[in-house]
Amino acid sequence: MFCKLAPVGLILTVMLLAGCSSTSESSDDAAQGSTAADSGHSRCDAAAAQFAVGKPASPTLLEQARTSARAQTARVLGPNDMVTLEYRSDRLNLNTDQAGRVGRVNCG
């Protein structure tokens, strides 16, 4: 009787282990793809918003730069503003000088 059940047990064990195994590369790609697709977020492109450098910061300029950079969110940062160390690849930053002119555009 044991000889008849051994192959069935072996097949079930192999199927169970095969279902649990995956390559880390494919699972990482799938996780990143599903996260980006679910949230609708994409990486921002700061180079596309470089036209803002030298211009006075305004809500209109901020929205134009955000749209051009394909960023989910955007913010204006003054020279003395406190910021968190949180990095967000879908956020555009317009860094201004004391006069309120944009001196640098970056994502984060």
Rank of each mutant, 00 (worst) to 15 (best):
P7C: 02
L62I: 15
A57W: 07
N80V: 01
Q72R: 15
P79R: 15
C20K: 03
G103P: 06
T60G: 07
A18K: 06
A57T: 12
A30M: 01
P7D: 15
C3L: 07
P7H: 00
S24L: 05
S68E: 11
Q50S: 15
S39L: 02
L62W: 03
M15R: 11
D29S: 03
L94F: 02
Q98D: 14
P56A: 00
A30K: 04
D81R: 06
R104L: 13
C107F: 14
S26A: 08
T73Y: 04
I11H: 04
I11P: 01
L16V: 10
M82G: 12
L94G: 14
A46W: 01
V14Q: 09
R88N: 15
G54F: 10
L17D: 01
A52F: 10
A47F: 01
M82I: 08
R104K: 12
T73C: 00
A71D: 08
T73H: 07
D38L: 04
S68W: 05
R101D: 14
V102W: 04
T23F: 00
K4C: 12
D97E: 09
L62V: 09
S22D: 12
V14F: 02
A46S: 14
L92I: 09
R43F: 05
A74T: 12
V53Y: 08
S58L: 15
T96G: 15
S24K: 02
T73A: 08
I11A: 13
R66G: 08
A49P: 07
A65R: 05
T96A: 11
C20Y: 09
L61W: 00
S89A: 11
T13Q: 06
F51W: 02
L85E: 10
P79Q: 03
D28I: 14
R70N: 14
C44W: 00
N93D: 13
L17F: 14
P79N: 05
V105L: 15
L12K: 00
P56N: 11
A71W: 01
T35S: 00
D38E: 04
N80A: 07
A71S: 06
Q32F: 00
N80C: 05
H41Q: 12
E86H: 08
S21N: 10
A99V: 04
E63G: 02
A36R: 02
G40S: 06
V83N: 12
K4H: 11
L61E: 11
